[in-house]
Simulated scan of single mutants.
Amino acid sequence: MKKTIVLFLISFIAVKSFSQTKTIHVFVALCDNKNQGIVPVPKKLGNGQDPKNNLYWGALYGVKSFFKYKKKDWKMISTLKTNSSDILERVLFKHKTRDVYLLADAYDGKKIKTCTEDFLKASNHQNEENIITDSIKLKFGGASNLIAYVGHDGLMEFDVNIDYQKCKEKKKDVIILACFSKHYFSKEIKQANANPLLWTTNLMAPEAYTLDASITTWLKQSSSLQIKESAAKAYHKYQKCGMRGARSLFSSGF
């Protein structure tokens, strides 16, 4: 009897420990002057096939650079291979004080539609991905706790056709850092039955400081209004746009 109880406790502790591990999956469509309907940026920053120098990835405030060099509470633990030729680079980060892992994918800029569709499918609990690191099995894709999209709002230029599933699971929290994302993504996010934690009402620069502030506040189990406020403060800090303008740029929920 005692042996059974001990085994039960060990099993319970293991399950509890795993459930406390949080995963975040960030889908980044690399900035691409040639293949996206954007106001052109300097050639080096707008090469959608060059992650190293891309505005949304390897540049100063790109996702990879910002989390690797600017944030002391995150550590990049590996660059991972992927079976998709559309993803030019995949990196895995671990939070230094919390049991949280962040997986970021840099999609070829000309594959922005694929990136958008993969993000939307994940927000609908589809395309679960398992990654093993240090003997720990981590669940990303549709099994992530938080899903984020960073880049140009491609839905301004193309439509997607996704077979959304009816899900009984808890609505997936999503962040969409792209211009006018609330307007253009609303239909799809409703069909995906996801929870729009943060999206935008106007033009914006989808750089990583806003993503970082949002994630940091989300990890504290803060309200959507608190997450929105932290995003606005970060955006104003770097863009010098004024808090009034920053607050009106971001929105939570429908």
Rank of each mutant, 00 (worst) to 15 (best):
K3A: 14
L198P: 03
D118H: 07
G253V: 03
S17K: 12
T97Y: 06
L203D: 13
I132A: 10
L146R: 05
I175F: 04
T201Q: 12
S252D: 08
T133W: 13
K70M: 12
A194Q: 07
L225S: 15
Y238P: 02
N161Q: 09
A234K: 04
S135P: 00
F93M: 07
Q126T: 04
A232Q: 05
L102V: 06
A148T: 10
C167H: 06
I162W: 02
H183Y: 11
S248V: 00
D212Q: 11
A29C: 11
S223Q: 04
K233D: 06
V26K: 03
F250R: 03
G242H: 09
N124G: 03
C31E: 07
L198K: 03
M1C: 07
A232E: 04
I162S: 05
I175T: 05
I227F: 02
H183T: 12
F93I: 06
P42I: 05
K2F: 03
Y107S: 07
K137R: 13
Y107P: 10
S135A: 13
I162L: 09
L102Q: 06
P196S: 09
S135H: 12
C179P: 08
Q226D: 15
K233V: 10
Q239I: 11
T216H: 10
F27D: 04
L9H: 01
F18N: 12
S65M: 01
K139F: 01
N161W: 01
P51T: 09
I132C: 08
P206Q: 07
S222Y: 00
N53Q: 11
E207I: 00
N83R: 12
K72Y: 00
L9C: 14
E117W: 00
G154C: 04
K3E: 14
C179I: 03
D173S: 11
L60G: 11
E157D: 15
D163H: 08
K121I: 02
